[in-house]
Design a protein around this nucleic acid. Structure first.
Lengths: 190, 190, 190, 190
DNA sequence: CGTTAAGCGAGACGGTACGTCCTGTCTTAAC
DNA sequence: GTTAAGACAGGACGTACCGTCTCGCTTAACG
């Protein structure tokens, strides 16, 4: 029962994801509609709905493609330095156009549990696992105290960045990141 | 040269905000429309649009009114106890239907700068000022170290709660709040 | 319908009717709202609704005031000349801004029987009675045939003018009026 | 080159026009809204606005469709008989629910030049051309005088019917039509 | 090498909510 | 006490976007 006919065109997928990314960066997350994405990609609307169940899932794919290239987790031997470097990279991403896509996804995921799950599984968990590894390494090297609850520690480090991206109540630049790390460090250090 | 003619009817304002809150709690934030709010409040649609520029600003007012009744900041003399009590209350609110309203507002505010500003000014800043006061009292009483950056400290305490509400990657119950406080405390204590 | 009882302030009445006339002439019959009339007259809306039941009745009063000054029915002794002169005057009025008011009234009266009745009684009948008198005089003078049905004759003379005003399918100038009179005359002449 | 994709669905057009006609006949021309037409036709509102610029243009199409089925112009050889028969049919239509549609259109066309033009071109002119043909045939057969101005003659015959429909100042029944024809005939006869 | 099922651009479709506008009534504050 | 200013309930309007569906064309795997 082999299917006949043409299959999914990878070139189209790329065009759609690229258009999604470009439009969100250009016009803001809210202003982008499926119609616009389709038109900008020179693609029929159905071609999008054939492969993605909803607009948010297009955005999440576009985000993943974009994010894959960034943020190789550094390993210098110093847990604090590694975490700071990684947090700087995250802050940079959060401030960049790619951050707009993340914000859009978080927005959409409120009231769309499936998307929320996707976002947690495919994006948040991914980022956190890197941090968790660094923390565990720090524990092994005696730089971080052994009784640390890793999940809470990750929240202490990353949640301020998320909150600043989503609410904008405080800056999200490099000095701020460093200040956060410095201030929270006594709670983590061995 | 004072205005003549009728003024804004405070009773109507109350009815509209109450209807907004009730409908959002009943049907979820996404399913509520201006038409429904108007119908449920027994009010013409124009009466809403006369005083609020958009649906989101109605929700933010409803939220403020609702939140105002909760969370009178406690003052027992122990900064840690006060902060923990306040954070427990916040976590409780974040988990309640009122939390749905906040999530919806954060969602809408991504890509609506005016709303984002409103949300920051009229809601977030309000909450933070209470925490800031408690932190300063703790410094005065020698319970908290004097060189603390208060804004960062507030992020360390509250951002995990916000992030857990918005992403749901970790629980938001009382034990979790206590664990966060305990874990972060070495970074704040004198 | 129309007015109920004497107006308290005749100056206000005049301001309202004048504003109505001016606005209809300026912006076209359709674009004028009660709000605009009130604002332009420097008058509260209620002051209008106190004396007139609906917008149309304001317009009909404004029209009557305007029309009263025009069209004194001429009497030269020649029925044909008198009718032609009167029809020329009517055509002139129909082509003028005042014609816009009449068109608006006819428009409103479709689907508003009370207004239709008002219009017939206070405006149409008024015009026709002048024509009927002229026709009867012509019969008495032996210029018009005695077995004429006057109502039908009035329609033959005036209906083309009304129809041209309302539909615009043919011109409404002086030569056209003269041509109509000349062409219909054999049906009326003794 | 040739368009691809779906085209205008003629079945929908028919459903919309039929619903329009039925609703106007049932509830009167004034009470009908686009929403109702759409709902009754089982159609999205946008589908109406996609093809017609305004409600009035929907009505005019519905009217044309309705009127087309009536009034095949009769040809018996006697110009007077033919015209009388046609005028009786027009009077009947003017008195019927279809007449309500015409009245509503005339009303709307005051102050909407585009609609007025549509009405003239697609409805009035259509009706008049039939009458003009009959008059010319009468001239050819020596029944009607050769120097007749046909446009004026059409006004003499039909304008009374229009005026009676729009103003209701005189009856619009069969005897009235006959009386009009009889009275005007001396002005037309050879 | 032809058949045939699927992919594709285009865009019409039913539906839902939006925010604006206007009407006719009701309310307030000033003169 | 009358008036202006204008808030109020109600409801139609025309727009925007969603996600589905249909059209006619093109393409690639199977036979």
């Amino acid at each position: 029962m082999g299917r006949t006919g043409p299959h999914r065109d990878p070139e189209l997928t790329a065009k759609i994801l690229a258009s999604t990314h470009e439009l969100i960066c250009t016009k803001g997350p809210r202003a982008v509609t499926i119609n616009e994405i389709a038109a900008h990609a020179g693609v029929g609307k159905q071609t999008i709905y054939r492969w993605w169940p909803t607009k948010a899932s297009v955005v999440i794919d576009a985000l993943e493609q974009q994010f894959a290239s960034d943020n190789p987790f550094p390993t210098t031997g110093s847990a604090k330095d590694d975490l700071r470097a990684q947090m700087r990279a995250v802050a940079r991403t959060f401030s960049s156009p790619t951050g707009s896509m993340i914000r859009e996804l978080v927005a959409q995921s409120q009231g769309d549990p499936a998307l929320a799950d996707d976002l947690r599984t495919r994006f948040v968990a991914e980022r956190r696992s890197g941090g968790a590894t660094a923390l565990r390494a720090g524990i092994d090297h005696g730089q971080i105290r052994a009784d640390l609850d890793i999940e809470i520690a990750l929240d202490l480090l990353y949640a301020p960045l998320w909150m600043r991206m989503l609410l904008g109540h405080q800056p999200l630049d490099e000095p701020s990141v460093d200040a956060i790390v410095d201030q929270v460090w006594p709670a983590l250090a061995a």
